[in-house]
Each structure stands twice: as structure tokens, then as C-alpha cells.
Design a binder for these strands. Sequence first.
DNA 1: TTGGCTGCTTGACGCAGATCAATTCCCCCC
DNA 2: GGGGGGAATTGATCTGCGTCAAGCAGCCAA
Lengths: 245, 245
Amino acid sequence: MHPADAQKACPHNPAVSCNNCRLSAICLPLALESDEIVKLDNIVQRGRPLKKSHHIFREGDAFTSVFAVRSGAVKTYSITDAGEEQVTGFYFPGEIVGLDGIGQNRYASSAVSLEVSAICEIPFAQIEDLSGQLPNLQRHFFKLLSSEIVDDQRHITLLSKNTADERVASLLVSISARQARRQLSASAFRLPMPRADIASFLGLTVETVSRVLSRFAKQQLLTIDNKDISQLDVEGLKAVANVQS
Amino acid sequence: MHPADAQKACPHNPAVSCNNCRLSAICLPLALESDEIVKLDNIVQRGRPLKKSHHIFREGDAFTSVFAVRSGAVKTYSITDAGEEQVTGFYFPGEIVGLDGIGQNRYASSAVSLEVSAICEIPFAQIEDLSGQLPNLQRHFFKLLSSEIVDDQRHITLLSKNTADERVASLLVSISARQARRQLSASAFRLPMPRADIASFLGLTVETVSRVLSRFAKQQLLTIDNKDISQLDVEGLKAVANVQS
DNA sequence: TTGGCTGCTTGACGCAGATCAATTCCCCCC
DNA sequence: GGGGGGAATTGATCTGCGTCAAGCAGCCAA
């Protein structure tokens, strides 16, 4: 392999630019011209690999930046008035965390790595400046924020109307689709999060999540080996989840 | 009363400008200089009063504008894969609907008036243009979008972790606070939405909502006469809702 | 006024998923 | 490589809220 290719290929390499990053199709969906990407590139700070269970930011911290996941996986959570943890999202490579901090100038949730991860930091003040000059960038961030609202509303509907089976099936279908988007297998992957986080995200208990997964395995909808999922029957799960494909 | 005052006072008067509108503190939280407000004012279209149960936009419609509620009340909802209606939000004067349309250039939900209402239409393309010139306006819209995310995440937590009593109490406390923000009574108001919409919003059934309200009345937390709520014990309900005040 | 329709309330009962409890499994660290 | 501790599974039991059903109240139309 050519050395330059090795640099491009390694997701932990801090020298990779947005131009070379194979996630840019997800992260900056074709909105920007290449000279615009160069400007953006100059303000993005690529971090060292982050170890498992390290925080990117915490609820209440002063808001400074949004963060793109380059490799690994991240969860966001907040602490309820009753003192429990509520998982509000899982984020995979190409996805952006921290948008909830803009409104109050403080992060409304905490973000923590679920495994070794690489994160790009994007200082928001500079995004605001650049957005004044680059209408495409402004539009891109408006769209990012709006899409997060739509996702959250879908999740509200899931929690409001769906059974435990439907919730678990929906999450698996969602993760599978996000795998496929990154050219990875849609039917075999490792769940980066523990069952307790899945349960919290889906408004269920750990026991219920475990039982549902066992039942799905018995029904040949998937094979589980602890965190490793394989032979995922995407169409079958979509049927369970009540999602039209 | 002086004629100019009459014009300012009437929430249905289409001639009112943002400058005179007493909701501007909610709608445009002090972010803009007065010459900036004039520019914004020029693009805002004030509509005729909207009758009850009329749609402002429908899920899937091409996205063109966001809308500020000037008087009355609005609900947003979407249709689930199973064909049921899921209420995603209630909007009172000073609040903005339609932000979920930016991401996909189509509204992700429908918006309908719950009573006679007045609505200001704000064409989004012009907001984008103006935002390039007015950093305060850009920032204001980023904040609006982000705050909607935070609200949705709080609602996710409510649905995920809280009992029927806590959910109903939370909604009442929220409506009460929004009344107070508009200088109206925090302890007496009319619920503009039917029980079925409350139930859908809170992930409950109509019967449960009705029972919880009856129980609250028995516990002296409020008085109900159909849609009219009075003698609301805000602190008591905050205690039920597990919210620290 | 009456009739009908829609929305709200109240009661009886059942069930999906929570809770409690007991193993077993995994893997991390000494 | 072995021991310890958290994570996951599985079973038994309980319960909050959904479901089904009946009755009532408000409101409009004729």
C-alpha cells in the first residue's frame, strides 16, 4: 500500500483532512464546494484517539464546539431529576454530537465514548463566522439541527406508541442502516453499548432487552454472541418494527 | 383608548409589526437591534385569523416557511407507520413551528390550530439570506433549533422514565410556566386541546389522562371544569412531577 | 325542545413489562 | 492462569396502565 493511502485509511490519524476523509459524504453531505471544504478544514481540530469511557463533554459545561465522530462510537445521556441516567442517543462515525449546547451556551447532555474513538472538534464560534460567508455551510448546519429534531421526534413516537419488541427491532434496523451507509455489513456488527444503555435509550429495563434479543434469536431473526450480532434478518426485523421498507 | 393602542393590543390585527408585538420578547429574545428588527419585519407575513382545526402545513408538504404563533394555540403531529396520530408538540403565542422541515425540505409533521389563532409566516429562504448579513439573526435561529432539540430530549426522558401522574403533572407545570411568561395567570387557564391530544402527547390513553386529572382534583392540586383549569397548585404539581423548582 | 354525536368520565378486568432473585458468563487484572 | 466483579440471562411474581364497556355531559342542528 502506498504511504499516502495508509494515511487516508487510518481513522485515528490526526493528519487526515476532511477532503480525504471517507466519512465526508455523511458528515458534510455534498453541501460544500472543495474550496469551501478547505476553509472548514482549517478550523477542524482532530484529536488523539479517545479511550473507552472518556467524556467528550459533560452536561452543564460551557458550550464551545460540536464534535464529529471519526471512528468508534459515542453515547449521549443526561441525568434526570430523580438522579437516573437517561441515554438520549448513540452516535457512529460521520455523525455529530453537541448540537444541544447551542441554545443555552451549555451542553444539555454529556457525551462519552463507548469504545476507543477518534473525534474531530469543530469550534462553533468559527462555524458561525464562516457561515456568514458560506451560505452552503450555514444551510448545512441548519439542516443538521433540523434533522436532529426529526430524529428526536421519531424517537418520541417510538417511546410513546411501540412495544418492547418494536423498539428493539427499530434500534437494530437503525444501526444496521448506519452500518450500510458506511459500506459495512448490514447484517453483522458488534454492539458498542452495554444492554443497560440500550434499555435506557428505549425506555425499557435490561431484563426486557435481554429477553427480546433472546426471543429474536430463537425466531431466527439474528444470532447473538454477547455484543456480536450476526445473521441479522433486516426485512424480518422491519416487519416486527412496523416500518415499511 | 387611543387608536394606535387598540392596534397594538389586538393579537389578530395583521398590521401589528414585530416592533410593537408584545410577544417579541419570547419570539425574538432580545437578540436583535431595532434596525435589524425592521429588516426582519419586512419579510414577516401576518396572516388573517385562522379558524379552529385548520392546517398551517401538512407532513410531506414542501418546506417554505416557519411560523410564529401570535394568538391561539397549535398542535403538531405526525402519522405513525401503524397509521395512528402522534402529537409531537403544543405551541402557544410567541413560539415557532415548522423547524422540522428544514432538514429534508419537507415538513416532518403537520401543524393544526386548536382554536382560533393568528399566525405569522416567516419565509425561510429570506431568513437564510438575512442571516448571512445579520449574525444575531443567524445565532437566534441556531438557538431556536437547538432549544427545540433540548425540549424534545426532555420529552424523551419524560416518556422513558416517568409515570402517568408525573407526565400529566409535567405538562400542566409547563403550560402554567408558559402562561406566566406571557403575563397570564399561572394557576388558571383553559386547555386548548382535547384529552385525546394530551394522551397522545404523553404516551398514555384518554382514560388514564382523565383518571389522573380526576385524582389531582380530589387531591386539591387543581380544579377542573371540562377544559378550564383553575386553582392550580404549581408547587404541589412540581413535587408530583419530580421537578426541582 | 329533542335527538344525536362527540368528548369525557368511571368501573372492572387483563396483560406487557417491571421488579425481585438466582445463576452463569465474560473479561480484566493481579 | 486463576480469581473477582460487573454484565447478561433466565425464571417467578407483581403492578400500572391499557382495554373493554357503560354511562354522562355539552353542543349543534332541525
